[in-house]
Design a binder for these strands. Structure first.
Lengths: 345, 345
DNA sequence: CACCTCAATGCAATCGATTACAGCTGAGTT
DNA sequence: AACTCAGCTGTAATCGATTGCATTGAGGTG
């Protein structure tokens, strides 16, 4: 299907393939007259480089691979968009893979990307432990940056946000709104984001004297359904605390919905917070208070690290960077205003 | 970075590269003893094929390219997921590109995919007219299937749903719910889906005697913001009709929100319908009545067509297929039950 | 005029896997 | 014993672009 080759262009222009290559890739010196002839011939024939052949020769593909746990999670989708944008500025393209939250599929994707000679890989690992072998092995072969989530005990670059700091803001805000007890709804502790967020939650709750009953830490997965189920369980097992702190927006949307379905007013009776600031958190009823992640910054840093790693090569692979950006709390209507209502204090 | 080559495996196993290749790609006959030696050597060295080199030789990449107008639109995201799944069954991978709804970016993506020797391309064109040159040109070089949307006047395979039939269901349902007037909120007529949906809307409205004022056909883009803006405009310019028929769910979500913000009850005072059945349409308040697209079927058909086209090659490129699947109406709470309330009739 | 410099260009090797063709070996045939 | 043939295996060409090295020739210098 790929018809026109550099040889045909060379023949038509009456020069050698070397010259054509030099003209088309702007390297080496070529006289103006020849350059014109070559360009002319290339245009006439509708020549397009064969990226595959070039990649084989150069072992560079100008392509970066990205693996995310789930492409249907709006947070990752918008992260992907940011990454693609950042890469575009460097003339690179993105090869996107969905791991379906399964470390085995993830491992296959990583291997396949490596076999395709991508210049680097950006991955948000599906599992804090089980993802390790594949991630580590891939990182040994080519530049790799972990994004948002990370695998325990791997030594690669990482970019994400400071979950602990974010949770502190969330808890302070809830406390200001009068919350004196709270539940945490997250995913199983199988990936770093839940772990970190829970750690931040627990620490600040303790400092503020917010009560967290042991059976009010519920772990499932990042989905609306789980948010609904978790709230149903809380209600069945003794009622809701003052606040529901959710590990992501999907859970929070489900939780809010379940609260209202069971007749609990949000935020009057229960405050709810999310995490990620996906587009729909703004549209929910009530609009969700959540933590905004600086996606463009995250993406830009990841791309920068990757570029740096490509240059450094095997040589002086210095210590790996862990870039932690500061997220911001977005206060909307699922939590109460700063001044605690007098009847609660 | 790619270290282990077939030559190294060959040396370690004490055979030629040809034999290694034969073992690893399961072609040609090789004695059991040699096969064992080779596999052993390959494992020891951690050999992985270089997909690039193989692709250059075979001019097949086992990769399919997909271009969508916007990766942040949940409808396309889930379509992508379905396609990836369908491809996975055939051992193929997906190279995903976002056109940002810009035909120029789209053209670049298509060219780049072609240069990468993908085996085929699945595209949902951004623009009904401006996307034509690039799509047609790409289709001339390799197998291409249009999905969901299509470009006017191109001759390629297409898979999508019967928008007109879907709109008939929507209108019948609204009519049953008592609607005697309606507005249409869509995108500019720059892509086929809005065109088709509007055509179906208008025709059935006429047949049912539902009034559609000329200035109540509002065209913007597929976004929540536009849905909100359109409703604001309708209210400012003389009030809402009985029903708002939206060309996609994002618009419908925005429209619903705006209605409620302006004090109009949905569905008691205004019925609202969407299109696509994205996940959040279920979560909205009230849950959105919408048209469900059979995404897995669409994806499966597209992949099938692509495979068929790859086999047929340039040879007997028969007439192109246009596969139109039947979508289903999903009735939720943003429309009224079948029996029209007596006070409306 | 002999000799040197340097820009322009071509030749041919290279990236790694695949495969047509040829060569070899040994079992089976007559 | 000579011959056939199938089954293995190796040699080398190939895919298309890039690039180190060699070659050419124009212009410059003493």
């Amino acid at each position: 299907m790929q018809r026109v080759t550099i040889a045909q262009v060379a023949e038509r222009a009456g020069v050698s393939t070397a010259t054509v290559s030099r003209v088309l890739s702007r390297r080496g010196q070529v006289s103006a007259a020849v350059e014109r002839k070559v360009r002319r011939a290339a245009d006439d024939l509708g020549y397009q480089v064969n990226v595959i052949a070039r990649a084989l020769r150069n072992s560079r593909t100008d392509t970066v691979g990205m693996v995310v746990p789930s492409i249907t999670n709006p947070f990752f989708t918008s992260l992907v968009e940011s990454v693609e944008h950042a890469l575009g500025k460097e003339g690179k393209e993105l090869f996107l893979c969905d791991a379906r939250s399964d470390p085995r599929i993830e491992a296959r994707r990583l291997a396949s990307l490596a076999a395709r000679n991508v210049d680097g890989i950006i991955v948000s690992p599906s599992h804090g432990v089980d993802s390790r072998p594949a991630v580590q092995q891939t990182a040994d072969r080519l530049p790799l940056v972990q994004l948002d989530r990370f695998v325990d005990g791997t030594t690669t670059d990482w970019v994400g946000v400071d979950d602990v700091a974010a949770m502190r803001q969330v808890m302070d805000h809830l406390h200001d709104g009068g919350a004196r007890s709270a539940a945490f709804i997250g995913s199983l502790m199988t990936h770093s984001s839940t772990e970190q967020r829970f750690a931040g939650f627990r620490r600040r709750a303790e400092e503020l004297g917010i009560e967290v009953k042991p059976d009010q830490v519920l772990l499932g997965d990042y989905s609306v359904e789980w948010g609904e189920a978790a709230v149903a369980r809380l209600i069945a097992e003794g009622g809701l605390p003052d606040a529901l702190v959710c590990a992501d927006d999907l859970i929070a949307l489900g939780a809010t919905r379940a609260c209202r379905a069971h007749g609990f007013a949000v935020p009057q009776q229960v405050q709810v917070t999310g995490y990620d600031d996906i587009e729909f958190s703004r549209l929910a009823e009530p609009a969700l208070t959540t933590v905004h992640q600086p996606r463009d910054r995250i993406a830009a840093e990841a791309v920068r690290l990757l570029a740096a790693a490509s240059l450094a090569k095997d040589a002086e692979r210095g210590p790996h960077a862990r870039i932690s950006l500061v997220p911001t709390l977005v206060v909307r209507d699922s939590t109460r205003a700063a001044q605690a209502p007098p009847d609660r204090v």
